[in-house]
Amino acid sequence: MTLPALPSVTRLPLSRLPLAASGWVTLLCVSAVADAAPLRMAVVGCYLLFCPGLAVLGLFRAALRTAPPNDRPAGLRLDTGEGGSEAGQTVLLVVMLSLSVLVLASTALMLAGAFSGRRTLLILAALTTVAALLPRLRARQD
């Protein structure tokens, strides 16, 4: 009886470090910039919409792409026509993952009776850093 092989992982490239640091830069901006400043709102808004989702999606991106797009069954094929649907779907997935992580973190803090904007950003920064720095799964080679 042989044990199943563990999924292989890749080494940490330097390209993941800006994503890992994005939450901490956002927290620094929240601390240094006035409350209603447009810069603060833009930085926090962009971070909340994109960075946690990019980090989470990065963990599973290669594992989700087990076959080239044209070799997938018809129901799993992404429309890669003139509209660039695959890129649009990826952006939508990133935003939805980011908002899901935000809702989970906010709900946990509310249930604990410790909700605040800075605590939520702190938890999201930590989760984004961990997700960005964890080894990526590779697609299974059959």
Rank of each mutant, 00 (worst) to 15 (best):
R40F: 05
G53S: 00
A20S: 05
D79N: 15
A67T: 09
A87N: 06
R40K: 10
V94W: 02
G84C: 12
A74M: 10
Y47M: 00
R16C: 08
S15K: 06
G83Y: 09
M41K: 06
A21W: 04
L48C: 03
T80V: 15
S22M: 03
P69A: 06
L54C: 04
D79W: 13
L59R: 13
S15W: 11
W24L: 11
L64H: 12
A20D: 06
S85L: 14
R77L: 04
G53I: 01
A63T: 02
A42D: 10
R16D: 14
Q89V: 05
T90R: 14
S31C: 10
W24T: 02
A36R: 13
A36D: 15
R72G: 00
R61H: 13
P52Y: 10
S85F: 13
V94I: 14
T90C: 11
L54I: 08
G83K: 11
A87P: 00
R77I: 02
G88C: 11
P69C: 09
A42V: 11
A21C: 13
S85I: 11
A74P: 05
A55V: 10
A55W: 05
E86P: 04
F50T: 02
V95L: 10
G81F: 09
C46T: 09
G45V: 07
V95A: 14
G23D: 03
L78Y: 02
C46N: 09
A21Y: 02
R40D: 05
L17N: 04
V56R: 04
C51G: 00
L39K: 01
P18I: 13
P38L: 07
A42M: 11
L39A: 14
G58R: 03
E86F: 15
E82G: 11
L49T: 01
L93F: 07
S31N: 12
L78K: 01
M41N: 08
A21P: 06
F60D: 04
A74S: 09
A34L: 11
L54M: 09
L93V: 08
L28A: 14
G84A: 10
L76A: 12
S85M: 15
F50K: 01
A36T: 11
G23A: 05
T26H: 05
F50M: 03
Y47K: 00
A42H: 10
R40A: 05
A62Y: 13
R77M: 07
T90W: 10
F60C: 13
D71W: 01
G81L: 13
A42G: 08
A87W: 07
L28I: 07
D71Y: 03
A32E: 11
T66G: 15
R16L: 08
T90A: 15
M41E: 15
A63H: 07
L64Y: 03
V44I: 13
P73L: 05
L17D: 07
L27Q: 03
L19A: 08
A36M: 09
Q89I: 08
L48Q: 04
L93R: 09
A63E: 08
V94C: 04
L59G: 00
E86L: 15
D71C: 01
G53Y: 01
